[in-house]
């Protein structure tokens, strides 16, 4: 049992496991998480626990080692939100 909100974002990131991530990705149309996917997912979790919110697409493109173009190939439905869901962290605040 994990708690998610109505948009599918985790309420409690500590409930996340790598197996659950693969399952969420599959539900979202990503059949297999490649090492590049994992690079982004691990980066997002690291950022979340360090800063309290996940990074925006722009910050991901600058700091994750994956370009924004490639981020969209990896997570076609919008990298920040899709990767945050798979990484088991709340929706990035980013925008006010």
């Amino acid at each position: 049992m994990v708690d998610v909100n109505e948009e599918g974002f985790f309420e409690h990131p500590e409930q996340w496991t790598r197996e659950i991530a693969s399952q969420i990705a599959a539900d979202d149309g990503i059949d297999e998480l490649t090492p590049q996917h994992w690079q982004v997912i691990d980066f997002m979790r690291k950022e979340y626990f360090a800063k309290g919110t996940g990074p925006t697409v722009r910050v991901l493109g600058k700091t994750s080692g994956v370009t924004v173009k490639d981020l969209y190939l990896l997570f076609p439905k919008g990298p920040a939100k899709m990767a945050a869901r798979i990484a088991g962290i709340p929706k990035p605040k980013g925008c006010i």
Partner: peptide, 8 residues
């Protein structure tokens, strides 16, 4: 708004 206890 949150929906507690939803499962995957």
């Amino acid at each position: 708004t949150t929906q507690q206890g939803a499962t995957r």
